[in-house]
């Protein structure tokens, strides 16, 4: 492990934090490469990779619109000792090249009985933003969480945007980092940069409460926190537990939290059926947590995502809907 830089505190937005992590990683790991569509000279469609090309030259480059080649070449380069950090501009676009993630990257270590590894990181972003069409709105984490061999995380704060990426790139297995474009330009916060590589996994308690546990991830974390604040005013204590790492998933921490409050709601932006919320509920059930009420899942209904904001708003969970369903869970 190379020497890590001294920790320092900087005021960074979410996108800037990703950028800071990429700068650090390229400095400390000479085997890293950064590439993808528009990431080099233009610095990314969201500006997240700005300045890297200037600082690191040929290790940062633009690619053709060829997701299979981007991902496949990352697998190949990773097997040969490079540590590629590739960008898939929207998670929706990974679907044109799933083979390279599911059949290829995820198999490398296992099938070679550990003789080969594929330490690549795929950065992408997902979810709805007002006006986005059905092919630019999907939340696909459950698809990837069904793939053994692939690590998956979803940061929702500038600090986690930094930390999770650092951890991901240092990991010797393929990791998918799913960012969220509605967060890129959010408020700057104090971010500790540098320092040791954070461990993989763990949860973040984003709001304290003892009546009900809300498990959530991604941008929904902040809708859940808003809901918790609303309900706090009504005397309902909502503990919001964010699980930024979905694989590995900290089952123990989630089970412990549900065991304390004995009520569980899972909130995600993805549609409910086959969503990872089902897995969370199953794990808590299997652990034998004696819940006071049946657990609930809050997500988008099972439908395509419409472009019109008025239609999309009717489908996506927001603070009011979360608060309403959690209130019913607690009060009956």
């Amino acid at each position: 492990m190379p020497e890590t830089s001294k920790p320092e505190i900087r005021k960074l937005g979410y996108g800037e934090a990703v950028n800071a992590a990429l700068h650090r990683l390229m400095e400390e790991l000479p085997e890293t490469l950064v590439y993808g569509e528009d990431v080099g000279v233009p610095g990314g469609v969201f500006g997240v990779t700005r300045g890297l090309r200037k600082s690191f030259g040929a290790r940062v480059f633009d690619t053709p619109i060829s997701e299979a080649a981007i991902l496949g070449s990352a697998v190949g380069a990773a097997m040969m000792g490079r540590r590629p950090i590739v960008e898939i501009m929207w998670a929706d676009f990974s679907l044109v090249a799933l083979d390279q993630i599911v059949n290829q990257a995820a198999n490398v270590r296992y099938v070679s009985a550990g003789r080969l590894t594929a330490p690549l990181t795929i950065r992408t972003q997902q979810g709805n933003a007002p006006g986005a069409c059905a092919q630019h709105s999907q939340c696909l984490e459950a698809l990837f969480l069904h793939v053994p061999g692939l690590r998956v995380c979803m940061p929702s704060t500038p600090q986690d945007a930094y930390d999770l990426l650092v951890t991901a790139v240092h990991c010797d297995d393929p990791v998918l980092v799913i960012e969220n474009r509605t967060l890129y330009f959010g408020a700057r916060q104090e971010v500790t940069v540098g320092g040791p590589v954070p461990p993989m996994g763990g949860v973040r308690v984003r709001h304290p409460g003892s009546d009900v546990t809300v498990v959530t991830w991604g941008a929904m974390t902040w809708r859940a926190v808003e809901a918790a604040e609303l309900l706090a005013g009504e005397g309902i204590g909502v503990e919001v537990v964010e699980t930024p790492w979905l694989n590995p998933f900290d089952t123990e921490a989630v089970v412990a939290a549900a065991g304390r409050t004995r009520r569980l709601a899972v909130v995600h932006e993805a549609n409910v059926t086959g969503g990872f919320g089902a897995e969370v509920v199953a794990r808590v059930a299997q652990a034998g947590v004696p819940l006071l009420a049946p657990p609930i899942r809050i997500g988008a209904p099972d439908v395509r995502m419409p472009a019109a904001p008025v239609l999309a708003q009717a489908l996506l969970p927001d603070a009011d809907r979360i608060a309403g369903e959690v209130r019913t869970l607690v009060r009956g």
Binding site: G131, A132, C133, A308, L311
Partner: peptide, 12 residues
Amino acid sequence: TGVNGGRGGSAY
């Protein structure tokens, strides 16, 4: 009254 009733949007 949109051509896709608002489901498609600019890109679809």
